[in-house]
Amino acid sequence: MQRIINFILEYRNAFLYAFLALVSLIFTLRSHSYHQSKFFNSSKWISGSVYNASSNIKDYFKLREENERLATENQRLRYQLFNRLPMVGRTLDSSNIDYEVIFARVTKNSFASPRNYLTIDKGLKDSIKQDMGVITTKGILGIVENTSQNYAIVQSILNTKSIINAKIKNTNYFGSLIWDAKKYDVVQLIDIPRLVPLTVGDTIVTGAMSSIFPENIPIGVIKKYDLNQAKSFYNIDIALFNDMANIKNVYIIKNRNKAEVLELEKSTNDVE
C-alpha cells in the first residue's frame, strides 16, 4: 500500500497530465459526432459581450461597404415588389405567412478551421432557437446550433458536420451539401445521380426537403464536377455566392410550420 501511494506521489504530474489530456480529448472527440458543447461556447455572456464590444468598434470601418450591400438588396427587393405577380385570394396576414425573418449582426466569424462557427447578437430573447436557418443577402450561411439569452452560435456551412439539402435550380434533382475543409469559398454537393445533365455555371439552391430553409435560397454555382469512385453519383464543387470571409448582416429564418411538419414525420415513422 505504502509503495502504491509512493508511486502515485512520485508520478503525480504524469497522472495530472493524463487526466487533463483525457478531459480535453473527450470534449473534442464527443463533438465530432454530437452537437457542440452546450456550456462552453462563445455565446455565453462573457465571451459574447467581448466579441460584441470588439465588433462594435470594427463595424465603423465597414459602414460604407455594408450600406452599399444593403442598398443593393433594397433595390432588388423593390424591383420584385413593383413587378410582383398579383397574389390571388391571399391576403398579407400573419396567419398565412410561412416564414418569419429576424435580423442579426455577426459578432465573430471564422472560416479557417474545419469546424467553423459564427456568433450572432440575437438569442433566446429574440426567440431564436436551435435549428433555425441563417442566410445573408447573397445566400445561405448556416444553421443555429446553440443559443444563450442574448447571443447565438451558428454552425457555418463551412463545417465538416454540416449537411444541407440542396438541388439544381429549376429541377428537382437534389443532393447533400457538405464541406471538405479545403477552401473556404468552395463547398461540395454529393449524391446527384449520374444521369442528371450538368453544366459548369449551373446555379445550386436549397431544396424543399428540409424544414429549416425555404426552397430556392441561392447557394452558389457549379465550379467543376466529376464522378465518384463508384461511378454512379457526381461529386460537384460549388463556388459560393457568399464571401464567407466578409459577413456582417444576416437574417434568421423561422419556419412557422416546422413543429407541424416534424410532428407529422414523427407520427409516420412511429407507425412503421
Binding site: Y17, V23, S24, F40, S42
Partner: peptide, 20 residues
C-alpha cells in the same frame, strides 16, 4: 481560448501537452 474560438478543448489539449 477554446471557449472564445469554439474549438472544444483543442487548445487545452495542446497547452497541457506543452506544459508537460
Amino acid at each position: 481560448i477554446d471557449v472564445f474560438s469554439d474549438t472544444m478543448a483543442l487548445h487545452a489539449l495542446a497547452t497541457v501537452t506543452l506544459a508537460y
